[in-house]
Amino acid sequence: GRPPQPKSVEDLLDRINLKEHMPTFLFNGYEDLDTFKLLEEEDLDELNIRDPEHRAVLLTAVELLQEYDSN
């Protein structure tokens, strides 16, 4: 089946190999997954995450988090 739900933002970023963005998220108040899963493209602009590939991966991760919630 699906991988288990990540336990933290750090756990999530670790899985998608984008842990380099951890300080950015923490500094901007994305300390838990409840906050993280509200992330949208405009937020990525504000966080200055410009890499299109990173953005795509992050937004996909957000969608997956929302799916875990609805099940």
Rank of each mutant, 00 (worst) to 15 (best):
G1D: 15
G1M: 13
R2D: 11
R2T: 10
P3N: 12
P3C: 12
P3Q: 11
P3S: 12
P3D: 15
P3I: 13
P4T: 14
Q5L: 09
P6W: 12
P6F: 14
P6S: 06
S8R: 02
S8I: 04
V9Y: 01
E10R: 04
E10I: 08
E10M: 08
D11T: 02
D11Q: 09
L12Q: 05
L12H: 01
L12C: 05
L12R: 03
L12F: 11
L12A: 02
L13F: 06
L13G: 03
L13C: 00
D14T: 12
D14E: 14
R15S: 14
R15Y: 09
R15C: 09
R15A: 13
N17L: 01
N17V: 02
N17W: 00
K19G: 10
E20P: 06
E20D: 07
H21M: 12
M22I: 14
M22R: 05
M22Y: 15
P23S: 13
T24K: 12
T24Q: 06
T24V: 11
L26R: 11
L26C: 07
F27E: 15
F27I: 14
F27Q: 15
F27V: 15
N28C: 06
G29R: 01
G29E: 02
G29W: 00
G29C: 00
G29A: 02
Y30K: 01
E31R: 14
E31V: 13
D32Y: 03
D32S: 14
D32M: 05
T35N: 11
T35H: 13
T35K: 15
F36Y: 01
F36H: 05
F36A: 04
F36K: 00
F36W: 04
F36T: 05
K37E: 05
K37S: 09
L38C: 12
L38M: 13
L38E: 13
L39W: 00
L39E: 03
L39A: 01
E40P: 01
E40M: 10
E40I: 08
E41Q: 07
E42Q: 12
E42W: 05
D43R: 08
D43Y: 00
L44G: 02
L44I: 01
L44N: 02
D45F: 07
D45V: 11
L47E: 03
L47T: 04
L47D: 02
L47H: 03
I49W: 02
I49N: 00
I49K: 02
R50I: 11
R50Q: 13
D51K: 08
P52Q: 08
P52W: 03
E53D: 13
E53T: 10
H54R: 02
H54A: 11
H54I: 07
R55W: 00
R55Q: 07
R55C: 01
R55G: 00
A56N: 11
V57T: 15
V57E: 15
L59P: 08
T60R: 15
A61M: 09
A61S: 10
A61R: 01
V62R: 09
V62N: 06
V62E: 07
L64T: 14
L64C: 13
L64V: 10
L65V: 08
L65F: 04
L65K: 02
L65W: 00
Q66S: 09
Q66V: 06
E67R: 11
Y68R: 14
D69L: 02
D69Y: 05
N71D: 15
N71K: 13
